[in-house]
Structures are given as C-alpha cells and as structure tokens.
Computed example of a mutant assay.
Amino acid sequence: MADWWANLGEAPLASWPGPQGVNEAGGGSVRGCGRVGDMSLHRAVCNRNAALVEKLVSEGVDVNQVEAAGNTPLHSAAFEGWVDGVQLLLRLGAKVNASNNAGDRPYHWASNMGHEEVCSLLEKHGATKERGKVLVQEHVPKVKDFFSKPCWSHHPKPYTDFIDFKKSEAAAYEAERKRAIRV
C-alpha cells in the first residue's frame, strides 16, 4: 500500500510558517496537536471577562492566538455576539479578517448566529465577507487519491516539512520492520 503523500507529485510544497495565525490575515492552525496557545484568552472571551482579556494581553498573550481549529478570540466574541468584547479585541490588535481552518472569518460566525450589530461593527473595521483560505490538517485521511477527488481538490497541499517528516517516519518504520524480522 502506497503512502498518501506519494501522489502529491514533484512540485515544491510551501514551508510551514508557524503555529500562530498561519493564514496571511491571521487565524488558522495546521499544527493543532498541542502546539496552539494555552486558550486562556479564548476562555476569558467565552466568559465575557473584559478585565481578564486586557490583563492577559498586557501580560503578553497574543490577542490573535489560535486554537486547534484555527479560531482566534475574535471568532469567539463574534460567535457569542459580545459587542463590547469585539470592540475590545479590535482595540487590542485583533485581526478583523483572520480566517479559521474552514475559511470562516469572525464576520461569518457573527452572521451565522444572527448578530447583526457585531457584523456591522466588524464591517466598520474592515471585515470582508469573502471566505479565507481553507487549510488541510495534519491528519489528512490516508486516501491515495485524496487531492484528486473533485470535492477535495480545492484544499491546499500539506506543507513540505510535514511531508518530509512523514516520509522519514515511514522510512524509519520500514527499517525497524526489516531489522525486527531480519530481512
């Protein structure tokens, strides 16, 4: 059985830019497995605790930190319809057009929940209604023709360092298998 990355072709793949806000406009995470922020700011936003939000950011917590699905605290405030929180996060430097792994921006979350006041506020600060880049997670199904299927062909390819890691991991497993059975 061939490994799923064998069908990606020889075209160069992008390098991984880092765990925090991998999309150009912020947000997004392709390394969610324990490599995201500590979620303290997300929890403060979900609890509508403005004082804690300000305290955490003043202590150095990234106002645009992401969780495993690529959502920023601004996504959470928009989803909750917390107008004061959205204003606070924007004042503290939150990226208004950050998109999560599914390409949703805070505006989409506010719109989906019917929070018109939040939508207006986000638009006033430059929010776009256009969807962001969809990111492929590290746990892409091991289907040999994943990227050739019409429903998945729009997904970007994984980053080159991840593919290189998976190839070296497979080679190490094969070497260990051969050593164990003395091939």
Rank of each mutant, 00 (worst) to 15 (best):
M1H: 14
K124H: 07
A175D: 13
G27V: 01
G103V: 06
V57M: 02
H154E: 10
W4L: 04
D84S: 13
A68G: 08
W16I: 04
I181T: 12
R31Q: 13
M1F: 13
S29M: 09
I181D: 14
V183Y: 08
P73F: 02
S76E: 14
E123F: 10
Q65G: 04
R131V: 09
R31K: 08
P106V: 10
P156G: 10
E174W: 02
G132L: 01
G26F: 00
R31Y: 13
G37T: 11
E116C: 05
E117P: 00
Q87T: 11
F146G: 01
Y173A: 14
P73G: 05
N112T: 07
G70E: 07
Q137I: 07
L41K: 07
R31M: 12
W5E: 01
M1G: 14
G132M: 00
A50M: 10
A50S: 13
H154W: 07
V61R: 15
V63A: 08
Q87R: 15
Q65N: 02
G28K: 02
R31N: 15
W82H: 05
A51Q: 12
D164C: 06
L121S: 06
E59P: 05
H155P: 00
V22L: 09
E123K: 15
A44G: 05
C33A: 15
S111N: 10
N23R: 15
G60S: 12
E54Q: 13
G37S: 13
G81C: 10
G132Y: 00
E67Q: 14
G126A: 04
K95S: 12
H75N: 09
I163F: 01
G85D: 03
L13V: 01
R43P: 01
A11P: 01
V57S: 04
H155Q: 08
L89N: 11
E138H: 10
V30Q: 14
H108A: 07
A2M: 12
M39I: 01
A51R: 11
C119D: 08
D3C: 13
H154L: 09
G103P: 07
V118C: 02
L135F: 11
V83F: 10
F147I: 02
A180M: 14
A77F: 05
S15W: 01
P19D: 11
S76G: 07
H155W: 14
H75A: 11
V66A: 02
P12N: 09
G26Y: 03
A102Q: 15
S29K: 02
C119M: 15
V83C: 04
Y107P: 00
A50W: 00
P19F: 03
K55C: 10
K124C: 02
V86G: 00
P141Q: 03
P150M: 04
A77D: 02
G103I: 03
G60W: 13
G9F: 05
A180T: 14
R131M: 15
R105N: 02
W4G: 03
P156F: 03
H75F: 07
E59N: 12
A2T: 07
Y173T: 12
